[in-house]
Design a protein around this nucleic acid. Structure first.
Lengths: 218, 218
DNA sequence: ACTTGCTGATAGTAACACTATCGATAGTTT
DNA sequence: AAACTATCGATAGTGTTACTATCAGCAAGT
């Protein structure tokens, strides 16, 4: 398979594909002759994965590289790959830094309440703690009930995540699904949350909004 | 209050603050004299909000401007502001585009199953549908159980979101909390999900290495 | 013979989010 | 009064990111 076919089947230009090769996001093909390199299905698959992480997951090239590096070193246990993937993602999206100790403590307490066994190195602590910081910065202190509902939801999601992983047919793809599921799952829950929010709003305030005709309004 | 004090209290440099003023992210202060402009608490608050959206929410300056624009036009009902805020946030992090009809249909069916009343214009449809697309692109077709768990979690979160909104003390800040809660809530749930994932992994695969002999496993 | 497409390599680009510097001005200290 | 410090708006510059354009050299197909 030539680069043009990889390009055609993935939607990225040949030039961009070369860029990914240079950056080490995609493994190089087999050189056959002085101006030919052969690519195969694994390259197509990899490019699609890269695009999914970048487009849907919103990762940068550098973050993507990190994540893929943990994927490629797949001689690890499930737990270790998860840990590595989470660390690689860690920074992804939000900026770096550590949440205030106060917020970290609150997340830790929440975690304990829900009986979660976690390690302090889990980047989720910082991500959650910084979100909490941001809430309080703008003058909103989340209630215990609020956090509790979020934690319950997180537990539900995590159970579904692990169930999907363990029922996977091809074990060699588990690590890939784990990594990509972490990123894409965030997007999925964000979208569903928007939908659920609209429904809740409609239920709490039934009169003004849903009554007046939305279809023929335009 | 001079610009230097706003700078000191928010952590952004005076130069950056001027940039935000230029870009229309912050309302201008009151000019008092040819080289003095007076700022107040509303400016401090606004800058903090901007930083929360950019840093924790990962929004671009342009996206932030859009979101703030809907906030400033606060003569709307709760439902309308939600709708406007969600549109302004749109993809929020990921790139634009529409999910495949197939995926959109699946999300719609899921929404119906859960008894959600939503409109087709809700950007959550596209966000969720594109996440679904990305899953199938890399060869993973989410099961109904998987999606169902995600939807249940989304419903839980949305109820907590709305409860937090309606118990707000100062009604004039409801719109602000709604907007910022949409962005920060995504980060919060992402962090908690990571923690819950680690716990689930530990439960399913009692580990040999990551344990530091804390408490007994079940 | 000639068009077409591929190769790796290098240089360039557009967007983004600031950041540095400017001359003019004004209050504050010495 | 002179010196110093801080502000003003404006403009130009910076570093990063994610590509993208162009190139000379080479080889297979028509």
């Amino acid at each position: 398979m030539k680069i043009s076919e990889v390009s055609r089947r993935t939607g990225v230009t040949a030039t961009t594909m070369k860029y990914y090769l240079r950056e080490g996001l995609v493994h190089s093909g087999e050189r056959v002759g002085s101006n030919q390199t052969a690519y195969d299905e694994t390259h197509v698959r990899r490019v699609k994965l890269v695009r999914a992480l970048i487009e849907t997951g919103g990762l940068s090239i550098a973050d993507t590289k990190q994540v893929l590096a943990t994927l490629d070193a797949d001689d690890m246990s499930l737990a270790h790959t998860f840990e590595a993937a989470q660390h690689a993602l860690g920074v992804g999206g939000a900026s770096s830094g550590t949440g205030r100790p106060e917020s970290r403590d609150r997340i830790a307490a929440l975690s304990t309440e829900h009986g979660w066994r976690t390690t302090a190195e889990n980047p989720g602590f910082d991500v959650a703690a910084r979100a909490l910081d941001a809430f309080s910065t703008i003058g909103f202190a989340p209630s215990d009930e609020f956090l509790d509902a979020y934690a319950s939801a997180a537990a539900t999601i995590a159970r579904a995540d692990l169930a999907a992983l363990t029922t996977r047919d091809r074990p060699e793809l588990v690590a890939e699904l784990m990594v990509v599921g972490t990123v894409l799952g965030d997007a999925l829950i964000a979208g569903l949350r928007r939908l659920a929010q609209e429904n809740e709003t409609a239920e709490l305030f039934p009169v003004h909004t849903t009554i007046h005709n939305e279809k023929d309004a335009k």
